[in-house]
Amino acid sequence: MNAQIVVDIALGLILVGLAAQVALGRHLFRSIVFYVAFGLAMAVIWARLGAADLALADAAIGAGLTGALMMVAFRRLVGIDPEQAQAQMTRHSHVAVAVAALTAGLVATVGLAALTMARAPESAGMQVLARLEETGLGNPVTGVLLVFRGFDTLIEMAVLLTAFVGSRVMTQRSRLNVTTISGFELPLVRTLVAVILPLAVLIAMHLLWIGADQPGGAFQAGAVLAGSGVLLLLTGTLLPAPRSNAMARLALVAGVAALSLLVLVPLSQGRPPLAFLGKGSLLFAEAAMMVSVAVSLTLLFAGAPALKAGRQ
């Protein structure tokens, strides 16, 4: 138990230290790099707490893709105005320090009070575990996401779609930015792509398949695929395309569409919306969601409505 608390304190300190580098660091690019490290540390803490689904999601989405999106946005700023590379733009303020300290103190007080308070004997989480058998799923988190609170997930996928469509308002007015890094033609990089890509697809399929019973699922799998998409864009194997195509648009709406079907199909049978249709339907919805997550995030990274094949 003692060793555990030492590890916990070390983890907490690392996390706070990285957050401090993000929030207080002088250079913007440095802050972004530290944010990626922060996301990874967060993933370790999720693992320590036993939230494996979150560990996977935060490593792939929170750290990986958010970091990639921030870096490519930074590069776009530098592309417009090279002096942005040295952008600092922070001011020093004693008021800010005081407010921040006060807020932290308040959150700590509330959090610690909440830890010691009396809790209701029965929680939704206990009900989930008690009734998970009815769904045949082994992973309670997947059960909550797709069965018990599936409507939340539908809106969440709609948010992702909205983020993409909303970004088009901005990106369609700009020239397409090249996302390729120099050196993609090197044999070494091609080897990397040749090895990583099939492996990533394999891992994504694995995460999708086991998601019903073990940590993993559509979001984690989609994020792994989106990561591969980012790699392909960086190496120039895929390039942003200026015009959208039907395939890309279908892939973007697949997740919301599949979840809408899960809601609407039971209605036609006279059952409540989103009534459980069996494990197969969940796998179908998860596959569609995986495609949508992967394509949306890759296209958001590319800042383009579609992709085309690049130089091989």
Binding site: L13, V16, M89, T90, S93, A96, A100, T103, V107, L112
Partner: peptide, 22 residues
């Protein structure tokens, strides 16, 4: 430990939000 860490991170975020121009 984690509640305290979360509080500290929240405070750092508030500081960042208040001082950031970018």
């Amino acid at each position: 430990v984690f509640v305290l860490a979360a509080a500290a991170i929240f405070g750092l975020g508030v500081h960042g939000l208040l001082t950031a121009g970018h």
